[in-house]
C-alpha cells in the first residue's frame, strides 16, 4: 500500500496571454485508492494555485468535473488515478468540442443551449389534471430509468464524432433528454417529439461510433437511447426522413449484396433527386475523409456475404 510517483501532464491555457494551450508537468505521489479529482485538487492546493478546473460534489452526481484523461472524456471524481497511468504519466485536457476558457475549464454554452431544441419539460395532456399523482406502472418507469440518470456532465458531447464535424448535431445528451420524454408514459407529445428528433441533425445523424456510451459515467448510455428512439420512429411509420431512408437503404444494400455499401447508403438516404441534399453531404463527407473516417470507396467483399443475404431474405419473408 505505498504511494506511486506519477507525472500529470496538464493542459494550461490563459486567453489573456496565450494564443494556444501548453502542457505543464506536475509530479505527485499517488496513494492507492486516490481518485483523479483528488490528485488535481492536490496539484492546485499543494503545488500550483493558479490551475483552474471545475468540481463540486465529489461524488459523481453534480457533473462538474468531466476532463479528458489520456484523450478521453472522464468524470474524474469517480476515476481511480492508478487505473489511468501509462508509462508513469496521466495526461489531462479540457473536454472537447467546446471552447477552452482557461486551463481545464471550457465554455459550456453550446451544450446547455442544445437542450432547448428538444423542449426538455414534461408536456402532459392538459385535459387530464389529476388531483393526486399521475399513475405510471413500474415497467413504464423502468423505460425512463436509464435516461433520467443523466448528470449533464458533457463527457459524451466532448467525445462525439459527429459533433466534431457538425456543430448542428443535437448531440448525445440532448437526444437522451428527448428520450426521457418520448418514453415517459405521462407525456402527451410523443409524436411531435419523435418528428422533431428524426429531422435533419437529429437521431439519424449519429454514426453509431459508441463513444458517448463508453464515456458516459451514468446509466444514460446515449447510443442505446438513440437506438430506442430510432426504433420508435420506424415503428411509428416515420419513414419519410433521411435517416429512415438510410435504414431502408441499408436493408436494401445489405439484402442485395450481403454487405454494406456505405457510399451508396448516404446518397440513398437524401434521395437521388435531392440535389441540395446531396451537396449538403459533401462537406461532412469531405471532412470525414480528411480525418480518415470515410468508408472505403470500393466496397470490400466479405466472406459470409451469402449468409447475410439469406438472413435478410428470411426476415423479409417473415415480415410479409
Amino acid at each position: 500500500m505505498t504511494a506511486t510517483n506519477v507525472t500529470f501532464k496538464v493542459f494550461r491555457f490563459d486567453p489573456e496571454k496565450d494564443t494556444e494551450g501548453r502542457y505543464q508537468d506536475y509530479t505527485l505521489a499517488v496513494a492507492p485508492g486516490e481518485t483523479i479529482l483528488n490528485c488535481v485538487n492536490r496539484i492546485k492546493w499543494e503545488q500550483d494555485q493558479t490551475l483552474a478546473h471545475r468540481f463540486s460534489c465529489g461524488s459523481a452526481i453534480c457533473g462538474s468535473c468531466a476532463m479528458k484523461i489520456n484523450g478521453h472524456a472522464t468524470l474524474v471524481c469517480k476515476t481511480q488515478a492508478m487505473d489511468k497511468v501509462k508509462d508513469g504519466v496521466i495526461r489531462i485536457d479540457p473536454i472537447g468540442n467546446l471552447k477552452p476558457l482557461r486551463d481545464l475549464v471550457v465554455d459550456l454554452t453550446p451544450f446547455w443551449k442544445s437542450f432547448e431544441k428538444v423542449e426538455p419539460w414534461l408536456a402532459p395532456d392538459a385535459h387530464s389534471a389529476p388531483e393526486k399523482e399521475r399513475l405510471q406502472t413500474p415497467e413504464q418507469f423502468a423505460k425512463i430509468d436509464n435516461s433520467t440518470t443523466c448528470i449533464m456532465c458533457a463527457a459524451c458531447f466532448s467525445d462525439c464524432n459527429v459533433l466534431e464535424v457538425d456543430k448542428r448535431y443535437y448531440g448525445p445528451a440532448t437526444l437522451a433528454k428527448a428520450h426521457r420524454f418520448i418514453f415517459d408514459s405521462r407525456d402527451a407529445r410523443t409524436e411531435a417529439r419523435l418528428r422533431k428528433v428524426t429531422e435533419e441533425t437529429g437521431v439519424w445523424d449519429c454514426t453509431h461510433c459508441g463513444e458517448c456510451s463508453t464515456r458516459c459515467p451514468t446509466e444514460t448510455k446515449p447510443l442505446a437511447r438513440i437506438n430506442e428512439i430510432r426504433q420508435a420512429a420506424m415503428k411509428a411509420g416515420m419513414h419519410d426522413t433521411s435517416g429512415a431512408r438510410h435504414v431502408l437503404g441499408f436493408r436494401e444494400t445489405v439484402g442485395k449484396r450481403g454487405l454494406l455499401d456505405e457510399n451508396y447508403v448516404p446518397i440513398r438516404s437524401v434521395g437521388f433527386f435531392n440535389l441540395a441534399g446531396l451537396l449538403s453531404l459533401a462537406p461532412v463527407g469531405l471532412r470525414m475523409l480528411a480525418r480518415g473516417k470515410n468508408p472505403p470507396f470500393i466496397p470490400h467483399s466479405i466472406e459470409k456475404a451469402g449468409e447475410v443475404r439469406a438472413i435478410f431474405a428470411k426476415r423479409e419473408e417473415l415480415n410479409k
Partner: peptide
C-alpha cells in the same frame, strides 16, 4: 408539494399499484 413535482415531470419510483 409531491403531487406538484410529479406533475412537473419528476420521475418517481412506483408501487405495484402504479402510485409513487
Amino acid at each position: 408539494t409531491i403531487y406538484e413535482m410529479e406533475h412537473f415531470g419528476c420521475p418517481f419510483s412506483r408501487t405495484p399499484e402504479n402510485k409513487i
